[in-house]
Design a protein around this nucleic acid. Sequence first.
DNA 1: ATTTAAGTAAGCTTTTTAGCGTACAAGCAA
DNA 2: TTGCTTGTACGCTAAAAAGCTTACTTAAAT
Lengths: 124, 124
Amino acid sequence: MNSNVNSFGEFIAKKREEKEITLREMAKKLDITPPYLSDIEKDRRNPPEKSKLDLIAQILNLSEDEKRYMYDLAGKKRNEVSPDLPDYIMERDYVRMALRKAMDVNAGEKEWLKFVEELEKRGE
Amino acid sequence: MNSNVNSFGEFIAKKREEKEITLREMAKKLDITPPYLSDIEKDRRNPPEKSKLDLIAQILNLSEDEKRYMYDLAGKKRNEVSPDLPDYIMERDYVRMALRKAMDVNAGEKEWLKFVEELEKRGE
DNA sequence: ATTTAAGTAAGCTTTTTAGCGTACAAGCAA
DNA sequence: TTGCTTGTACGCTAAAAAGCTTACTTAAAT
């Protein structure tokens, strides 16, 4: 999807530079110190929590797809589920049931894409 | 599904008592101290990590359903996704895509159950 | 040459999380 | 009664995670 970037830090650093925003500026908007942001961009620290990620997306004017990509990179770095997903999953028993069923029968891309197609038919 | 228990600590405490295992015995098998296990059962501490949860399930002889219920309680307590799910989710882009699509179109129980049915048809 | 701006190295401080040791109260057993 | 067993209160230690301060380097701008 997006260029040759594969880590959270690289990704936001690159986007920031594209927008010609300085690290210090961005740190200020995020209400963190420049060195701390620097560490994050260098992947030496964990990506921040969801609210700040949202703020980053806003500051960097990310598209919906880019934002999700960023969530995925953040999730992977933290060894957690991408932070836009947990609420949806944990508030719905049937979602977890379905995920487990999918694990059980070893559902792969084919099955899941079919599910998405079904949703597309119904979605408004 | 399972009686009137709604927290991780209560759940494993009850199961433990049903099996007439003492807290100290169980702590020993888990390789933690009794006071620490006590705190967990009283919901004053976080549920342990996945490997210990699996051990608990084994010690308490939980059924597959009970085990998942335990994972859910653990996930909720920690404000995380139930610990049997993250790997499956994070290793598969299409799963996350599907989850997001479902969020977008506000898919509810009906749609998800239909998905499960589909899987049941195909599952070996 | 000098200032200014950008990013970062180095090393704190603080907070949270995990986990232990000791000691005690209640119940039951001898 | 004495003595064991069970669970737990209380408080400590240790490690990880979050986040800051200070000070330095490099490059450009004056």
